[in-house]
Amino acid sequence: MTSNNIQLDNNGRLKHFLTTEGLNKNLLLNILDHAESFAGVGDRAVKKVPLLRGKTIVNLFFEPSTRTRTTFELAAKRLSADVLNINIAQSATSKGESLQDTLRTLEAMHCDMFVVRHGSSGAAHFMAKHVSPRIRIINAGDGNHAHPTQAMLDMFTIRHHKKDFSRLKVAIVGDIMHSRVARSEIHALTTLGVNEVRVIAPLTLLPARVETLGVHVFHELEAGLEDVDVVIMLRLQRERMRSALLPSEQEYFHNYGLTEKRLQVAKDDAIVMHPGPINRGVEIDTHVADGERSVILQQVSHGIAVRMAVMAMSMGSLVDKQEEKT
């Protein structure tokens, strides 16, 4: 598909990382393998590798974010790149500058990579299409479309605990409709060949024809959690109550909030994930969030390794791990 080919160079290697959709299993595994080799870097006395020395990476955030921006910044610095943070939410576009003009301006500063977060679906594709060929684009979240590095760090966390994807049942719970994380996770999970992906939500939080993404749909939490190996909880935004999608936080927690009791129907060794930031008492009970099955904080530290891998791969600084094996 043309929409995805844009992510690869002529040799089929990662050029831009815009979505997990349309990338093959080998490439996704490659990202995880490289991330594995970076995972130890943070524990060393000198937390840097010189792979991107002399390169300039711009964090271009059109939407506020702390966690994602910080881990991208850390990842870039551990690769020895220079990092520029631009917060456009309060900058140029509010003065009426178009995205294309912003892009041209930054290009003129001779940067090598843009890490982009934008409120409109397809913004990262748009930039990849219009940017000069030497610049790489990493999608740090576009509208409701994709958040591929978040999905890959979740895959990394899942593999860390479960080793083999093929036998897993994974449930994603909550606001699938407005979640770029969920979409990217679904594509990654189905590509990596998990046994079953389930989405659990009321109809108001499910996008039309969601089953065409290759998932099984549940409206009841207990039924959906039965026998699963991985539970991914999604953040519930307060706007959903205002726009008549849900009656109240209390009612949501009562029906879809993850509690220890509800988790009992899952496998004994099931892990609980959440892309953060969490709403305690809305989508997840405090005891579960801090409980022994929760891997939420591990997700954050894995985020740095995965982002290092993606950045280094798209800059062409790494040899292909899967190719090495074959």
């Binding site: 959709e21 679906s121 397809g122 576009d142 509208g143 409701n144 479309h145 994709a146 770029r180 979409r183 996008p207 039309a208 024809r209 969601v210 065409t212 993404l213």
Partner: peptide, 15 residues
């Protein structure tokens, strides 16, 4: 159009 494509691309749908 609200359907397979709007869901995949994360575009605000028109039913």
């Amino acid at each position: 159009h609200e359907g397979v494509i709007s869901t995949r691309l994360g575009l605000p749908p028109i039913p």
